[in-house]
Design a protein around this nucleic acid. Structure first.
Length: 599
DNA sequence: CGTACCTGTTCATGTACGAT
DNA sequence: ATCGTACATGAACAGGTACG
């Protein structure tokens, strides 16, 4: 719903926007009212019976029934830079897993999630409304107001000018329309959940407490398989938790603090009128909200959080967040779930965090080096996520494979690691220095597999994947991954993709984890050890032998290897075809050619 | 020496988009 | 219309650095 806060909205008259918002939410318009499924709004500005129950989203990240946990992370830069500094090197990253190794979850947080589903509330806010500076505090420290009562009932919006009220109404409609849509979709996707509570305009504390309990039950019903996690159930009796870092030691509290931080960051974007896809303006440029006529504020990112020029912005953000949080319905669900609370000093701390977190984005705008770093960071992140996805897919195929070849599924699963996969690119990366565009890449790929007619029409129906197989990997291990991939694909491959191999692009990177011996390409280890850069990484390579019960596995691998259309998957021989690009070195320095099936 | 900031890494989550 | 995948965004965290 990013669209809601961009320019066109600002150019609409407020009434038009109200109407459009309502229509967008599925409402009908009569002469004097807007009628929605369970909402009626009188056009004189007073709303009635607006349900605002937040929606619980079930985390799809972790599931207690997930058959194969993710392997530990192995970062793309490990080879270049050594293990990550901020955590011990993964234990299984130094060799093949010991017999009986049970894949562990990537993080403790996943374990926590599996045990106790967390429900979240995520609301976009309109970014078009500058802060209401009704308690301008030139002092910039905020001891005065007390912590927000997490149990307080929803109050009427703060008073102000007619225009303010209209703006507040528009904003609140925006939020509530979104909530309505979410409710509708939640209702259809979780039919067993009880209907959301509808809160009246003047809800008493008792009513709020009751509806909180109701919502919580609803979220549990929607997010668990019936198992009870009573010990963590926040109730009206749970004391409020002040969300300082020191206090937030448990997963739910960390989530709550994190959600509050996100809220404050969004508040800062609101106050600045800069969405996630927008550029940060020059602080000297005056920007005006066309609806309210108020001026957007802009951070002085050249300075730091103590820069006096940033004080007005911080004031505004803190005030805005504080005021918005007075309405419990604006409070992130994770915060409500733990009865979290905050005050202005805490919001000030989070505003500083928001400033620091947003600063790199600004820097990437104004500094070429920072832009490059940002780009590389994104690329690494993207590829990491692809790797995780691919491993998940392959692990999902293990039971079928193991059954087919009468193998121990755990033993097969132990062979699947993030770093051991090959790349399959459906296009060059945006920063690919070999191919400047997808068109040139596709033409070249087509040429390599014999399609000499490289007109656009001829290439139209051609789906190509460029396979970049790691140098070190044996045919057998490649064939195993290939076989698992084919199982993972629900429909037969049927040559939908033309795979182009041996294009000359090779992955020379050495995984942090050595494979078992059968996974290492013949002759590769001896050669690689002569390379002084790689030799230190290879000390344990070739010392692990093969896994227990290898005979059965080997027979299966021989079978799939014979069937696999892999040719010379062991890699390293591509140049024999004369296909090596002139600019390979450039490619190798930036690229981390890890497997990506882009389908 | 302590504080603030910067950077790299990993993870969680929301959204866009294509396939079915 | 629904679902799954890929990607973008932002937060947490840890280690390093600059500076008063």
């Amino acid at each position: 719903m990013h669209e809601l806060h961009v320019v066109p909205v600002a150019r609409l008259s407020p009434l038009t926007f109200v109407l459009l918002s309502a229509i967008w939410a599925g409402c009908t318009v009569t002469k004097n009212t807007l009628n929605c499924t369970s909402m009626t709004i009188a056009l004189n500005g007073h709303r009635t019976a607006v349900p605002t129950t937040p929606i619980a989203h079930t985390s799809s990240v972790a599931s207690a029934t997930e058959e194969w946990a993710n392997p530990p992370p192995i970062n793309a830069f490990v080879q270049a830079n050594g293990p990550a500094r901020n955590r011990p090197a993964p234990q299984i990253g130094r060799g093949p897993p010991p017999p009986g190794f049970a894949p562990v979850n990537r993080s403790a947080s996943l374990n926590m999630l599996a045990q106790q589903p967390i429900t979240r509330d995520y609301r976009y806010r309109s970014a078009n409304f500058p802060p209401t500076r009704d308690d301008t505090n030139p002092g910039h420290h905020y001891p005065a107001e007390g912590p927000i009562d997490p149990m307080r009932s929803e109050g009427p919006p703060p008073g102000g000018s007619g225009q303010d009220q209209l703006a507040a109404m528009v904003e609140s409609l925006t939020l509530e329309n979104r909530a309505l849509k979410a409710q509708l979709s939640a209702a259809t996707s979780a039919p067993s959940a009880p209907a959301p509570a509808v809160r009246g305009q003047l809800s008493s504390r008792a009513k709020v407490v009751k509806s909180r309990g109701h919502r919580y039950q609803q979220s549990i019903a929607a997010t668990t398989d019936g198992s009870d996690s009573e010990s963590d159930t926040p109730t009206s009796r749970t004391p409020a938790v002040y969300l300082t870092k020191a206090n937030c030691t448990t997963k739910p509290l960390k989530d709550a603090r994190s959600a509050l931080q996100t809220f404050v960051t969004k508040s800062m974007r609101d106050v600045c009128g800069v969405g996630p896809n927008d550029r940060w303006a020059d602080p000297d440029e005056r920007r005006v909200n066309e609806v309210t006529g108020e001026t957007y504020l802009t951070p002085y990112f050249e300075g730091d959080v103590k820069d006096p020029r940033n004080v007005p912005l911080f004031d505004a953000v803190i005030d805005r967040a504080y005021n918005d949080l007075q309405n419990r319905d604006n409070m992130p669900r994770a915060v409500r779930d733990v009865n979290g609370t905050c005050d202005k000093p805490l919001l000030e701390e989070m505003t500083k965090n928001a400033f620091r977190n947003l600063k790199p984005g600004w820097k990437a705008q104004v500094d070429e080096d920072a832009k490059t770093r940002d780009h590389v960071k994104r690329q690494i992140n993207r590829r990491l996520q692809r790797r995780v996805t691919k491993v998940k897919q392959r692990r999902g195929a293990v039971p079928t494979f193991a059954e087919k070849y009468h193998l121990d599924a755990n033993a097969v699963a132990e062979l699947i690691y993030e770093e051991h996969m090959s790349d399959e690119l459906s296009a060059p990366d945006s920063d690919d220095e070999v191919y400047q565009s997808r068109e040139t890449w596709k033409k070249e790929m087509a040429r390599l597999i014999g399609h000499l007619n490289s007109t656009n029409a001829a290439l139209q129906g051609l789906e190509i994947l460029e396979v970049i197989t790691p140098d070190w990997r044996s045919h057998k291990l490649s064939a195993l991954f290939h076989a698992l991939h084919e199982i993972a694909l629900k429909t037969p491959v049927k040559d939908k993709y033309k795979r182009v191999r041996n294009t000359g692009r090779r992955c020379r990177r050495v995984p942090a984890a050595s494979p078992y011996d059968f996974g290492i390409a013949d002759g590769w280890l001896e050669n690689a050890r002569e390379d002084p850069e790689r030799a230190p990484l290879l000390e344990t390579w070739g010392t692990f032998g093969n896994p227990p019960g290898f005979e059965a596995l080997n027979a299966a691998l021989n079978s799939v290897a014979a069937a696999a259309p892999l040719g010379d998957m062991e890699g390293g021989s591509a140049s024999a075809l004369g296909l090596v690009s002139d600019n390979l070195d450039a490619f190798m320095t930036l690229a981390d050619p890890q497997f990506a099936i882009s389908t």
